[in-house]
Design a protein around this nucleic acid. Structure first.
Lengths: 345, 345
DNA sequence: GAAGGATTCGAAAACGATTTCGACACAGGG
DNA sequence: CCCTGTGTCGAAATCGTTTTCGAATCCTTC
């Protein structure tokens, strides 16, 4: 009835040995077809499930992959991208027979940490999501003995998968340029050695403007954090310094929220006075007034590619690399298309 | 170096048997203090970690709790409450030594399902989050052999923990009443046998209005789903039917989003023409214009109480019950306080 | 018909922990 | 001095699988 049916019960029922049962169930070649079918049939009828502990003990693997997220940051779990990516990752891993485990920091054993939990459980692989610089070292040290991939951050010596930020920035600038804008500003994210989004989006913007011969240092500003308040402050500084800009490309939707507040206060109307593009396509971008254009990261692919790469690493086919997933510009009503007469040359 | 140090290695190093090592490490009383200290010291120095599989095999438990969420629904994982609750739950469980596992549906074994995975892994308990009616039966059948608690839905014969919806509704009505409102409408959520939020919030509103002698059936409407579009439709019907209402209490912030769109189209200004209260305190409630008042569910407590109840169930101290966590009204600028002269009697 | 290869199968040894139960030493009481 | 109780410790069984390796059988082929 419950989970007490073991391989030994099947052996008795079929009238053979446990070795044969195991081999039949695992598709080994040294068992006849007829016997194999009988074993499978009986196993199914008796409701047999292999005991993962026994198997793990013998095979030294667990069919478990651990997931590690932003140590150090308070609520990294609630980052809007975390869940969709992890969900896609989960689905892909499950198709290969793996299940997801949240590793813990706590333990009754002294000096214990997340990694010793991983080895305790003989976790087969690790997904590092948005991990902080200061927490990285122990992982790098362990990365030779346990496969890992990183998501949303570039970790040296690990294969990392993240959004193609430079390409997105180029698309943003190009889109605004084609709409007739010339004075295009950028509110960039903070610089971070691992979470490179801020730097990459800023660099991409910089280069795209350069290529169009539009570059102006005064139009570039970097926020201090990723919150709406940071965006608000950055935009305030920007708008007082350069009141004549016609478009702003923001590295985060949260910045747009702060920006919108300022615009309401100062009666700057969007898109008539100012065009805006955000980044992330968080839930509410379509509902605020005005709905604003933004980049949607391909969370589905980010997760599934991370899964695929981790599987390769587990099978020993890994090689360090950085994988880029393109983002898509979702067009809503926050950008104005200028008439030919309005375009400044 | 890696995880290969076993209890045998320690036994050899200390010069004793594995039995003694195990007993020393597990705090058994039949081992002398001096020996115990030596064992602990050596174990720490050698970096010993117990092999979870060996222990699980022998002890028939895994120190793992599985988490099951909204089967059947597409993206139940991305429900705004899921992650914070699960995070709080995780933290509490970790303090007791448990780790969290996402159970999978897939497997190479025929007829396999999530529950057989659970028994395969000898999961010690299950957290059911917002599980759908049609997926429930197998869980109920298994609930005698494996402890479970339910969160955000009332599952008969299981202990369930959820927000005190009726109380919140009473608070909402009371708040609006004290502000001078008398014609208070309600956009309720759909009825669902398990996910009772819609019914409970509606019933709570109904009763509170009744108690104040304000009840009017025309002011009550139930949306068909939980999306902004559902809210929009419901509000349209409501506002054409009863144009003279002065306040709306919505069972979901998403409804407020739909409502706000309608208000913009029809130049109904908030809070001057209409006062609004939402439910959930999703991320953007503070940033939309106007920021609106809403109920914040205590995700922290929901998660930690669920953990506590699951631990009790695991230790056999369980008894079926429904636990209510009060929600807090977050006041922002979407409600108008009437002057005494405006209040209708 | 015998040698040799291919195919099937099972006995038994792992894997790394926990637990039972008996052995032993030493204490004190009669 | 013997008997009993208490405190420590270890040998060995056990949990449920997988895997090695030898044995047994069967089929070819000369």
């Amino acid at each position: 009835m419950s989970d007490h049916v073991t391989i030994y019960d099947i052996a008795k029922a079929v009238g053979t040995s446990t070795a044969t049962i195991s081999k039949a169930l695992n598709g080994r070649h040294d068992v006849s077809e007829t016997l194999r079918n009988r074993v499978i049939e009986v196993a199914a009828r008796m409701g047999y499930r292999p005991n993962v502990h026994a198997r793990g003990l013998k095979m030294k693997q667990s069919w478990l992959v651990g997931i590690v997220y932003g140590e150090g940051e308070e609520n990294a779990l609630e980052h809007p991208l975390f869940l969709p990516i992890m969900n896609a990752f989960k689905t892909s891993m499950e198709e290969s027979g793996y299940e997801l485990l949240f590793l813990s920091q706590h333990s009754r054993f002294v000096g214990d940490n997340l990694l010793s939990h991983a080895s305790s459980r003989q976790v087969d692989g690790l997904l590092l999501m948005n991990i902080a610089k200061q927490a990285l070292d122990p992982f790098l040290a362990a990365s030779k003995s346990i496969p890992m991939v990183s998501c949303d951050a570039i970790v040296p010596s690990l294969t990392s998968v993240l959004t193609d930020n430079a390409d997105a920035s180029a698309k943003a600038v190009r889109y605004l340029y084609d709409a007739g804008h010339r004075k295009i500003a950028h509110i960039g994210g903070p610089s971070n050695p691992l979470a490179v989004s801020g730097d990459e989006r800023a660099a991409g913007y910089h280069k795209a403007m350069q290529d169009l011969n539009l570059r102006n240092d005064a139009w570039e500003i970097r926020a201090e954090g990723w919150t709406p308040e940071d965006g608000r402050k950055a935009f305030l500084e920007l708008i007082t310094r350069c009141p004549d800009i016609t478009a702003v490309y923001c590295a985060a939707d949260f910045y747009v929220m702060g920006l919108l507040q300022v615009c309401r206060e100062r009666h700057i109307s969007i898109p008539e006075d100012l065009s805006v593009i955000g980044f992330d396509d968080v839930q509410w971008t379509g509902f605020v007034s005005p709905g604003f254009s933004t980049f949607r990261q391909d969370k589905q692919r980010l997760g599934s590619v991370a899964a695929q790469k981790l599987l390769e690493a587990i099978h020993g086919e890994s090689e360090e690399s950085v994988i880029r997933i393109p983002a898509e510009l979702i067009v809503r009503g926050s950008c104005k298309t200028m008439h030919a007469t309005e375009v400044q040359v």
